[in-house]
Computed example of a mutant assay.
Amino acid sequence: MNKHSTSKSFLLLGFAFIILLVGPLAAFGATLSTPSTKMYFKNNKYYIFNNVWGKDQVSGGWQTIYHNSDSNLGWVWNWPSKTSSVKAYPSIVSGWHWTEGYTKGSGFPTRLLDGKAIKTNVSYSISASGTYNAAYDIWLHNTDKASWDSTPTDEIMLWLNNTNAGPLGAYVETVSINGHTWNVHKGYIDAGNGKGWNVFSFVRTSNTQKASLDVRNFTNYLADSKSWIDKTKYVSSVEFGTEIFGGTGQINISKWDVTVR
């Protein structure tokens, strides 16, 4: 058996193990398992990103993204770890993600001062064990020409699901936004060499598997109510994914869209 066939066999065995452990959610069509690979869809407006940025912290882990249709897509993971650090954030990206420019037709970047709505909808199901969340990740810059080396000024996370996990930073308060209550946390990422960015996490007080949100409601809270961000900044992207600290599982996404107008 050649090396390629051996790797494929192990991957299929891994899928079988995950399904036996947490139960099946969806069959697999087009799949990619190579770290940092992208699977574009909806005329390249979005892509699924096999983001495994913390994989060096654990051995023997793997992750696969798949796209059967625009209403049947997601990822499967196996990260054998019980530490409190994030191993991966497989996600759907609209706009920028440490890349040259923005995805086609995304409507990003959009300056907060311009007052455009940033509406997004998601519906998903998860079958998993371990420690993880399901969360939006929203990036802001001081420029409308963000590139691969452009350090963000701010990161906003909207947690829809919190399973045994905890956000970065200190708890600030509980607020009502978009018809739901959220625990607000404020922290900072030190990226070294004098670079870094603020992280604002909104953790929903009860888990949900669907959401219809306007991101501007959250940026208005940060800019107007707290004066933590300036409205001259640009929203560069909106992502939705799973921060995985450890365990096995699958997320299947049946609805996803982001509209800037």
Rank of each mutant, 00 (worst) to 15 (best):
K119S: 13
H141L: 06
W98Y: 13
H67S: 08
L113Q: 11
Y89M: 01
S129E: 14
K87S: 06
W79R: 01
G54A: 13
H141S: 11
K104R: 04
V86N: 07
Y102H: 04
P90I: 07
I138Q: 03
K42E: 06
D56S: 15
G130R: 10
N142W: 00
N43T: 11
F49H: 14
K42S: 07
S71K: 10
A117I: 02
Y124Q: 09
W53H: 13
T103M: 00
S59L: 13
N142F: 02
A128K: 15
S91V: 13
Q63L: 15
W98E: 05
N133Q: 09
G95H: 09
S69W: 06
Y47I: 07
A134M: 14
T110H: 02
A117P: 06
A88D: 05
N44T: 02
Y136P: 07
Y124V: 00
T143R: 08
G107E: 01
S106E: 11
E100M: 01
L73F: 11
I126N: 05
K42A: 09
A134Q: 15
G61L: 04
N51I: 08
V76N: 12
W53A: 07
P80Q: 10
N50E: 09
N72D: 12
K42N: 15
G107N: 05
Y124E: 00
G115E: 03
G95I: 05
P80Y: 11
T64Q: 07
K87L: 13
S125M: 14
T103F: 00
D114E: 13
K119A: 08
I48Y: 03
N68Q: 06
S94N: 15
Y47P: 09
V52W: 15
D114L: 01
Y136E: 05
W139C: 05
G95S: 04
K55P: 02
K119D: 10
T103G: 03
N142D: 15
Q63T: 09
G101T: 12
A88Q: 10
G61E: 12
K104P: 03
K104H: 11
T131H: 11
K42Q: 15
G101Y: 07
N51Q: 01
A117G: 09
W79V: 04
N78F: 03
E100D: 12
G74D: 02
K82D: 14
N51Y: 14
Y89D: 08
L113V: 03
I118R: 11
V86R: 00
Y132N: 03
T143F: 06
Y46P: 01
I48P: 02
K87Q: 08
S81H: 10
A134I: 06
K116H: 12
T83L: 15
Y124L: 13
S127A: 15
T83W: 04
L113E: 08
D70M: 15
G54H: 14
T120F: 02
T83I: 12
W139V: 10
L140F: 10
F49L: 10
S123A: 06
S81I: 12
G105A: 06
A128Y: 13
S69M: 11
D114S: 03
N78H: 14
N133C: 06
P90Y: 15
I48R: 08
I65L: 10
S84R: 07
G107T: 08
G130F: 04
N51L: 08
D56R: 09
G115H: 07
A134D: 06
N78Y: 15
W98K: 02
V122P: 10
N78T: 00
R111N: 05
N68Y: 04
T103K: 00
G115I: 00
W75S: 06
N68V: 02
T131V: 14
G60F: 05
G115R: 11
Y66M: 01
F108H: 01
H97S: 01
